[in-house]
Nucleic acid binder design. Structure first.
Lengths: 293, 293
DNA sequence: GTTAATCATAGACATGGTTTATGACTCCTA
DNA sequence: TAGGAGTCATAAACCATGTCTATGATTAAC
């Protein structure tokens, strides 16, 4: 490998382009002898005279012209690279890939994403949904920059940032209005039809575990696959849904749903942003996290 | 202009390609801290972290991967450039453009060109024919590397190398065999039909000038456009041709033509190789001249 | 727990690039 | 035709940059 100092090619490029060592020196913030020396070095490394020197400046020789054709291309790519990196740095372009659940995207991140998009329209936002283990795998493959999930998570390779706290609760519609002012026990609640999120959900296992700790088995009459359906089924009176209070906010406000008071405190759940401990965040992701945190 | 030291991109390229600063250092004949420092410098110049460092080596970040896509291209071009220059240096490729007259090509250069082609089959040979002023213009435009012409030539921008000496003479065929053993004066010669090369020829003006100096006007009965026709017409007995003895060698030997002895010495003409004084010769041209010189 | 990799850091060092000063040359202009 | 202003080249002093040595921190593997 000949391994010529690439910096010499920059000098050569500018000398060839301007047709003057003096001008090249000016562009490079160097002196003319320095450029002269650099060109001489390149010439001796390549074993060819690259320029004809004359009183008006320099002119490419046959060999110099051939070299220039290649170096011009190389220079173009490097310039493009520098421009691109500047864009990325200025958040004028780039990609922000977030993993999470659809409900967290919709009810928690949406507002931030809108603000982010407005502030940095050049950055493409990609939302990838999956379960927590899937998202951890995606992170480790580099398919996403960060994941938004319910805590706790224990994986030494991950770095966790806490987000908001969410309070899960049971909600019902007007068909069950007799429960509005009561405080129910677990036993009492279990007499009613229960609607839960489908298996593999962190929220679901949290609540069934809580019931089990108190000696009760929480078995749903209906299982659904989305938060929207949980809310919809509860509103239609098909049963009592276990949902995140914050996600039901609209319906709780307009009265189509109400929260049921339990005599047992349902522990809140923490939302967290997980990133790979070893992998530095992209500027786009850094900026997004800083907008939230 | 951000003007980052191009040499840093070489280090970055190898680090990214090998996935290891240590290995990159080995390829660059540097130490690992040096590479580490170079990468850090590049990162701070670009305002982005390019690598995730871990115990096994380094891995490109999102931004690093984007940069790599560009730098890989640039590196490819530079490598191609270096390969090409090595080829040119080794005379494995290139172009040799020679200007001259067809007769000089055929009768003088041909042997050298054959040898050259055999020795350097990778080099494309281009012969451009034209008059001396045309060739000088071609030289100055960079359209040819060297010109082969009759001397003298006076142009301060040109560098002249002497080639062989050619002796012009009058030749005739068997129809004029009575002249074979005579030594003619100019006056006597002028009684016969003369065949000259068409106007603008250096050889022609040399001989007409010589006659004029002696008070005679040499006016041809026939003008032809090539040396071959000069010889052909003389052989057919159409007249006495003024040709270069060396170009007529074959016919002088086989007796179809003979040289006429004049009582005036026709000064020999010198063939020269002209190159631009200011423009360094390509390797291909240097080699060619050295084969002749 | 030990070993052997990795990269990072700090400071000493020296190579190499830069500068200054000057010279040779060419072109243009008065 | 001389003078001036531009070009690039050269040489030597300088110094700053990049390099190395030495060491540390961390991680992975055995």
């Amino acid at each position: 490998m000949s391994m010529i100092n690439y910096e010499l090619y920059k000098v050569f490029y500018l000398a060839a382009k301007t047709g003057s060592l003096t001008q090249a020196a000016r562009l490079l913030y160097l002196t003319q002898p320095s450029v002269s020396h650099a060109i001489k070095q390149l010439e001796s490394s390549l074993g060819a005279t690259l320029f004809a020197r004359n009183a008006k400046g320099v002119e490419l020789t046959q060999e110099g012209a051939i070299l220039y054709a290649y170096i011009e291309q190389a220079h173009t790519f490097i310039t493009l690279a520098e421009d691109k990196m500047a864009e990325l740095s200025n958040l004028e372009s780039g990609e922000l890939r977030i993993g999470g659940s659809d409900s967290l995207f919709k009810h928690y991140l949406l507002a931030y994403l809108e603000a982010y998009r407005l502030a940095h329209p050049g950055i493409a936002i990609r939302l990838i949904h999956g379960t927590t283990p899937e998202l951890i795998a995606s992170l480790k493959e580099g398919a996403i920059d960060l994941g938004v999930v319910r805590l706790p998570i224990s994986d030494t390779q991950l770095e966790i940032n806490r987000g908001i706290e969410l309070q899960d609760c049971f909600v019902a519609g007007s068909q069950f209005s007799e429960l509005k002012d009561q405080t129910l026990s677990m036993e009492q609640l279990l007499r009613y039809p229960i609607i839960l999120f489908s298996r593999n959900s962190r929220a679901r296992s949290a609540i069934t575990d809580l019931f089990r700790e108190h000696g009760h088995e929480l078995t749903p009459q209906i299982e659904v696959g989305s938060v929207d359906l949980l809310l919809e089924f509860a509103r239609k009176g098909l049963g009592i849904s276990f949902v995140t209070r914050e996600f039901a906010a609209r319906h709780l406000e307009d009265g189509t749903l109400f929260a049921i008071k339990l005599d047992v405190k349902v522990p809140p759940s923490q939302v967290g942003f997980m990133t790979l401990r070893n992998m530095p965040l992209s500027k786009a992701a850094q900026q997004f996290l800083s907008m939230i945190g």
